[in-house]
Design a protein around this nucleic acid. Structure first.
Length: 429
RNA sequence: GGAGGGAUGGCAGAGUCCGGUUGAAUGCGCAUGACUCGAAAUCAUGUGUGCUCGCAAGGGCACCGGGGGUUCAAAUCCCUCUCCCUCCGCCA
């Protein structure tokens, strides 16, 4: 959510910044609502002032035994007027908030211009894609041969897009989660949390998934709860409606499964682990002082990159252009892993600075050095998403004989296992 | 799911039965000042948030868990929801 005062006082600048995202006009109706609301509120406040004064007078007169019937009638009439104005006011406020919630964040000045993904800029790359002396196979084939993922049977349980990991696959999933959590907590200074996976409307609105993305969420109507599409939602909302007393920055990391309906993505990348309805992810979230947030974005991104470097996987960092930026982000880096079997770059992490956009929605504040209460800046980034990471591990580590070599960093988490081989009978379903 | 108890300012805690000038006693904490070489103690003063009007000084409105109602007037009465505590039931 943007600051209404900023919109009011710097309309032209806000408009220009929003235009970088695309041609939509967000501000027109909002300004009209804002002016109307203030006009009406001022008028209603004046009537309330009169009513308060008159009521007090009645109290005094009653105490001294005077008759008050006439003035009571008068104040009652005033009350009816006030009720009507308050009704209109409430409607205006609802409309105003809805309009405000529908406006995306302003792109940071350093964000590249561009209308869509083709405008994104590769900021840096790490590691050289491996040379193969055989044709690299796609992950689905490798996984099938190893017997570590079973999509067929998973379909029976839930439907397409829900992976079922088996044996070494399940073990690798667990190893990766532990590896990443350990790295971020022990070496990058994050505090681990294990949040709820079902979130209420307020939480979903706080981080910006609602109202815009409702179609992409799994919803439990009986309890009015949403399955979290990312740990960003429960973790960021930990401090909702709080004035944070702890010293900033606060760095939190959480493992969670993520649930996404991917409505509208049907048919796109639907095979294998590339795009699924349920997946695991380790997510980093930071709450920082406003003047620190861009430095924090760089270090957060570096924390995610460190995961990939230790796993010896080639990747590149892409600065998203204004047109490709997600709704709530002011600036965002995507990290993409090289997948030789797909011959494609796969996004495994999105590191964003939301500035005060989420904090204002969720009312997350702190007291600054001057003692003033102000909104914090929030950031988050995947550190990293599991399915595509597994794709990259399988495709980059594959060997001519169908086995897969794992990076040494994982050995302690895999009971020393360094090569994935086709499982024995009892290791398969 | 059922019965009962509770939710008041940064914290503790009065006020709620019997509605009236109560944004709210008192204590603690915090800030500033006095005293002191300095500190403690003591004394004095101040100490919430949001919206809004105003160049400013300074006003106004709202907020006693959330929402709604009764009333000229609600922290106080009524309804409802949420959360916490105790007990009963159910349950991995």
């Amino acid at each position: 959510m943007l600051d209404l005062k900023l919109i009011r006082d710097n309309t032209a600048a806000v408009e220009a910044a929003l235009k970088k995202r695309g041609p939509t006009d967000y501000l027109g109706p909002l300004r009209r609502l804002d002016e109307e609301r203030r006009r009406l509120a001022t008028a209603a406040d004046e009537l309330k002032r009169r009513r308060n004064a008159a009521s007090e007078e009645i109290g005094r007169r009653k105490k001294s035994g005077q008759d008050t019937a006439a003035s009571q009638q008068e104040v009652k009439a005033l009350g009816r007027q006030i009720a009507e104005m308050d009704g209109n006011l409430r409607q205006l406020e609802t409309d105003l908030r809805a309009a405000l919630l529908a406006i995306p964040n302003l792109p940071h000045a350093g964000v590249p211009l561009g209308a869509d993904a083709s405008g994104n800029v590769v900021a840096r790359a790490w590691g050289a894609p491996r040379e193969f002396d055989f044709a690299p196979r796609p992950h689905l084939e490798i996984a099938e041969k190893l017997g570590i993922v079973d999509f067929g049977r998973a379909g029976r349980l839930s439907g397409a897009g829900f992976p079922l990991f088996v044996g070494a696959g399940a073990r690798l999933e667990r190893a990766l989660i532990r590896f990443m959590l350990d790295l971020h907590t022990r070496e990058h200074g994050y505090l681990e949390v294990a949040p709820p996976y079902l979130c209420n409307v307020a939480a979903m609105t706080g981080t910006g998934q609602l109202p815009k993305m409702a179609e992409d969420m799994y919803y439990m109507p009986a309890d009015e709860l949403y399955l979290a599409p990312t740990a960003e939602v429960p973790v960021t909302n930990i401090y909702r409606e709080e004035i944070i007393e702890r010293e900033l920055p606060i760095r939190l990391v959480a493992y969670s499964p993520c649930f996404r309906r991917e409505a509208g993505a049907a048919g796109r990348e639907t095979r294998g682990l590339i795009r699924v309805h349920q997946f695991d992810k380790v997510e980093m979230v930071q709450f920082v002082a406003p003047d620190q947030s861009y430095a924090a974005l760089e270090s957060l991104t570096a924390n995610a990159e460190d995961v990939l470097q230790r796993l010896e996987l080639p990747y590149r960092v892409v600065a998203l252009c204004a047109g490709d930026l997600s709704f709530a982000a002011a600036k965002c880096y995507d990290i993409e892993l090289w997948a030789p079997g797909q011959n494609a770059w796969l996004e495994v992490s999105s590191c964003s600075n939301f500035e005060a956009f989420q904090a204002r929605r969720a009312n997350i504040r702190r007291r600054n050095a001057a003692g003033k209460v102000e909104f914090v800046h929030t950031l988050n980034g995947s550190g990293v998403a599991l399915p595509r990471l597994m794709v990259a591990l399988l495709e980059n580590g594959q060997q001519a004989d169908g086995t897969v070599a794992l990076p040494p960093a994982l050995a302690p988490y895999m009971d020393g296992e360094t090569v994935l081989r086709p499982g024995e009978k009892e290791q398969r379903l």
